[in-house]
Design a protein around this nucleic acid. Structure first.
Lengths: 218, 218
DNA sequence: TGCCTGAACATAGCATCGCTATGTATTGTG
DNA sequence: CACAATACATAGCGATGCTATGTTCAGGCA
């Protein structure tokens, strides 16, 4: 029994909520605290209620996404790196589909809005690099292009993860990004090759970077 | 009190659920039947439970979308018409944001999958027209391009309607569609003009085709 | 040392949720 | 006109999120 308000209990509850989200169990107050040894009151002292828990879970989703994007490879080809960011985005969303859904569910505000901005900044940085080396025109609005790339990734993964499209539809990402980047001034063939390189993770690295085991035994 | 299993009660319940969705009230069984004079059992005799009601509501969302897309103007310029379909898609989603969210929420299957396919078919038809008149290359996969256009629209409207992006971010749709269609062989400048024409509804027609009044007084 | 205050937690209970078992009224049919 | 079937209302069950109240322990002070 921990006396001081330790972050141990806090992360314990968040991870338990994420786990129940992952295993498709109904995430209820009583079910969350059932296996932890703490009482229902802990959720209220730590998060102020279920909404606070959802908000914290949402934050956790953005944190994991930021970590995934930060771990994306950085090469001399910014267009390739942009495609790699897109692939990492989709990979993260598919690895944590329920966390991803919570991230973009309405009704809850984000505790720290900087987490979402940081996501966009990763894209903006590579876009600026592409402009610097002449791949993209200098009059390209970096933030706008980053937003458009985000919309492509989000649209694809939403329609696939919890929507009507099959998983194979994610392959549309490469030609879509190629079309978008080409419209920013990149040479079509060069762009296509760069995007293909970044989009498909090279064999040898982690091809299925799931940070939690699939729910096989539960 | 209707004796025979009339569709009147059925649509009454669906519209009541949609209304409560729209006004952000918590959509509960008891709240739905509160003002209608029918009992909670009606939901079970008509829909088999709340899941059935959600499914029917989802179907209603697709039906409205199909109607909106069918009402989109048809001109001699198929690329313009494609952009108009995209604009109609966004317009419908913004006019019924909660219905739209239910449409793509996981956990519920669609009663009639043809409704979703019909949506895509509207796009495919105009894409085929564009191929027929030489705007798009003949080797373009119509279904793939339709899916990609759908992903763009869905991604944009998801991030705006219930997400972190401001409404103004919808303007990204035009350059994104232009980039996509240009990659299919259309001339960049011609494509941009066509998309602009279809994207922005001409003044004089209905510019805000909301089929329900905005919740101003509630 | 002994007590006292306040924070951190457990316990019990409330209003409400979705859902179902049961009762009641109406319609069609012989 | 009696009977079966259907459509609906009522009451209640288990479970939910949440809160009011009780209980335990850390740490300051005489």
């Amino acid at each position: 029994m921990v006396r001081t308000k330790d972050p141990v209990v806090r992360t314990l509850l968040i991870e338990r909520a994420a786990q129940m989200l992952r295993t498709r169990e109904p995430v209820t107050l009583r079910a969350i605290v059932a296996g932890t040894g703490v009482s229902t009151m802990a959720v209220y002292t730590y998060f102020g209620g279920m909404d606070g828990l959802w908000q914290a879970t949402r934050q956790e989703g953005f944190t994991r996404l930021a970590a995934k994007l930060k771990a994306a490879p950085q090469t001399a080809d910014p267009v390739r790196d942009l495609a790699a960011l897109g692939a990492a985005y989709l990979s993260n969303a598919l690895a944590n589909p329920d966390l991803y859904r919570v991230m973009f569910d309405a009704g809850f505000e984000l505790g720290d809005p900087a987490a979402a901005d940081e996501t966009l900044h990763c894209l903006v940085r590579d876009i600026d690099r592409a402009k610097a080396i002449g791949r993209f025109r200098r009059d390209v609005d970096s933030l706008a292009l980053a937003t458009q790339s985000w919309a492509i990734g989000h649209g694809l993964v939403s329609l696939v993860s919890t929507g009507p499209l099959p998983r194979q539809a994610l392959d549309h990402g490469a030609p879509m990004l190629t079309a978008l980047f080409t419209s920013c001034g990149d040479d079509p063939d060069t762009c296509r090759r760069s995007v293909e390189l970044g989009w498909h993770p090279e064999p040898g690295r982690e091809t299925a970077p799931v940070d939690q085991p699939p729910p096989a035994n539960t």
